[in-house]
């Protein structure tokens, strides 16, 4: 298991460093590039959890689709102007507040959320797609449907905003 441990360290370190680049770099296109790297590392972590399906879906949806649209928008921004913009001082307390809440949330999940109870599949036993599908449509059918409604709301919202802009 030593090899898995070393691989985990590599992926995790690259993920953290590239996500730091995402938030600190000035050029939005470079930020998007580093976001791709981060998401790929997360996919690699899924592979280490022996779930190739989740890893591939991560690459497929986030890297293959979401970020392409993201870049699409970013490319149309005036990069020079965007990289000059800074947080206005009066907005900073709000930003720090949100940051603090997120940090507390993460810590709660890590230390109180019972993460240590989750067991990995045994080495060599991969999580089958059929298993995920069956669980999604039986045990987790309610959250699954809720998520689809949330996505629908977002879609309708985007369309409404686009109509507003035009009219």
């Amino acid at each position: 298991m030593l090899i898995e441990y070393i691989l985990f360290i590599i992926f995790a370190v690259i993920a953290i460093m590239s996500s730091l680049c995402v938030v600190t770099l000035r050029n939005p296109v470079h930020c998007a590039g580093y976001l791709i790297v981060t998401l790929l590392q997360v996919a690699a972590l899924f592979l280490l959890c022996r779930s190739p399906f989740l890893a591939v879906v991560q690459v497929f949806i986030y890297v293959g689709a979401v970020l392409v649209l993201f870049l699409f928008v970013v490319l149309l921004i005036d990069v020079k102007k965007a990289s000059m913009e800074i947080f206005k001082p009066k907005h900073r307390p709000l930003a720090y507040g949100v940051l603090a809440i997120l940090l507390i949330e993460t810590l709660v999940v890590i230390f109180v959320g019972g993460l240590e109870k989750i067991r990995l599949a045994a080495p060599g036993a991969e999580v089958k797609v059929e298993t995920i599908g069956r669980e999604l449509f039986t045990s987790y059918i309610f959250p699954f449907e809720i998520v689809s409604v949330v996505l629908l709301v977002a879609m309708v919202g985007a369309i409404v905003m686009a109509i507003d802009r035009r009219g």
Partner: peptide, 20 residues
């Protein structure tokens, strides 16, 4: 066991070369 998805996902990434 997800070969076909892997190919589509990986192949789709080639687009970044074009955009970037």
């Amino acid at each position: 066991n997800v070969g076909i998805l892997f190919i589509l996902a990986r192949g789709g990434m080639g687009i970044y070369g074009i955009i970037l």
